[in-house]
């Protein structure tokens, strides 16, 4: 070890001792600042020693450097500790005792819209069953919204789909089912997809109708799928979303694009199926339409209906949210009062 290095190390040790002694007698912030300038400032001994590091032999630089870094860290740490002590003392002196019973600062946490939350639950269930998520346009044509889904022209089955039109060619989709058609036209079975999205009906506005609403469409196509599978899927779904013990029933119904078709009811959670104003005295609440994909729909998208079978369903997200959260007026979802939104 060269003399120079030895001297540097000795000086480092001495500096540590001197700084420690000086720190013990620092009484206020002014003195602390003087201490900082003396031991950590740009003209301090430490700074001078750091600069002299470059003139040491290469082999001895690491040890010397380490010693200097340790010293700097220690001095900076001591400076911070003393500074904090002064700050705490000052705070206590200035403000007196803290009243711990006063309210805290609640961070501004945003919330998701209840339709999003409900949709996320629906999506969680179906993605766990292997369904992927697809989407499609809200402005649709006659073919995708009706024709390909086996709605004959000039047929009363179109009455249930009070349609908002843009012009002769374009309309606002009345359901998410046109995306079924788009998916099947672009992919080969087996298929499992759900399709969330906005839909439109030419409805007047009241507590249970709104011209805008959300649906989640589901489609499963494989070579061996049954009405029992559809029932099982939706029964499990009802328990997942509305809680264990929720009962579900399938009522035969008619949709042009499924056969056999069903409307799906769940037992009313408000009255436990006895009958109450929420369920119109029926004990059941409708949440979805469903059925086995009609062979004509398969033909329309170029699937062989002898080879492929499938099921499809469409559920109203507002409807499910209303049942789940006990909301009695669909308009609340679109008014966006914070008093409403912040409950979710």
């Amino acid at each position: 070890m060269t003399d120079e290095t030895r001297k540097l190390l000795a000086e480092t040790t001495a500096l540590k001792k001197a700084a420690g002694e000086a720190a013990a007698s620092v009484a206020d912030e002014k003195e602390l600042e003087r201490w900082r300038v003396k031991f950590l400032g740009r003209k301090s001994a430490l700074s001078r020693l750091s600069k002299s590091l470059s003139s040491l032999p290469e082999a001895e630089k690491p040890a010397a450097g380490r010693a200097l870094n340790e010293l700097r860290a220690e001095l900076e740490g001591r400076y911070g500790r003393i500074q904090r002590q002064f700050a705490e003392k000052k705070a206590e002196a200035g403000k007196g005792r803290i009243d711990y019973t006063l309210p805290g600062i609640t961070p501004a946490i945003g919330s998701l819209h209840p339709i999003t939350k409900t949709y996320y639950e629906i999506a969680a269930f179906f993605t766990a069953l292997g369904f992927s998520i697809a989407d499609g346009p809200e402005v649709e044509d006659e073919f995708h919204n009706f024709g390909a889904l086996n709605f004959p022209p000039d047929h009363p089955s179109r009455d249930a789909q009070d349609t908002l039109y843009i012009n002769d060619e374009w309309l606002l989709r009345t359901h998410t089912s046109p995306v079924q058609v788009r998916v099947m036209l672009s992919q080969e079975p087996p298929l499992r997809v759900i399709v969330p999205g906005r839909c439109y009906r030419a409805d007047a506005v009241d507590a249970s109708h709104y011209p805008v609403f959300h649906q989640v469409e589901g489609l499963l196509v494989d070579d061996n799928v049954s009405l029992g599978d559809l029932k099982g899927t939706l029964a499990a779904f009802a328990e997942y979303v509305f809680g264990p013990g929720t009962k579900m029933r399938f009522r035969p119904h008619f949709f042009p694009f499924t056969e056999p078709s069903a409307e799906v009811d769940v037992s009313c959670a408000v009255c436990d199926g006895v009958g109450c104003p929420t369920c119109g005295g029926k004990g059941w609440l409708e949440i979805a339409g469903a059925g086995m994909v009609h062979p004509s729909v398969f033909r329309n998208v170029g699937y062989d209906p002898e080879r492929w079978v499938g099921y499809a369903f469409g559920m109203g997200v507002e409807r499910i949210a209303m049942l789940k959260y006990g909301v009695n007026d669909i308009r609340l979802f679109y008014e966006n009062d914070f008093a409403f939104l912040q409950q979710f």
């Binding site: 494989d222 799928v225 099982g232």
Partner: peptide, 12 residues
């Protein structure tokens, strides 16, 4: 009377 089952088959 149709028994509720979950779909088997092939997962895409």
């Amino acid at each position: 009377n149709v028994e509720a089952t979950l779909p088997g088959g092939r997962l895409p």
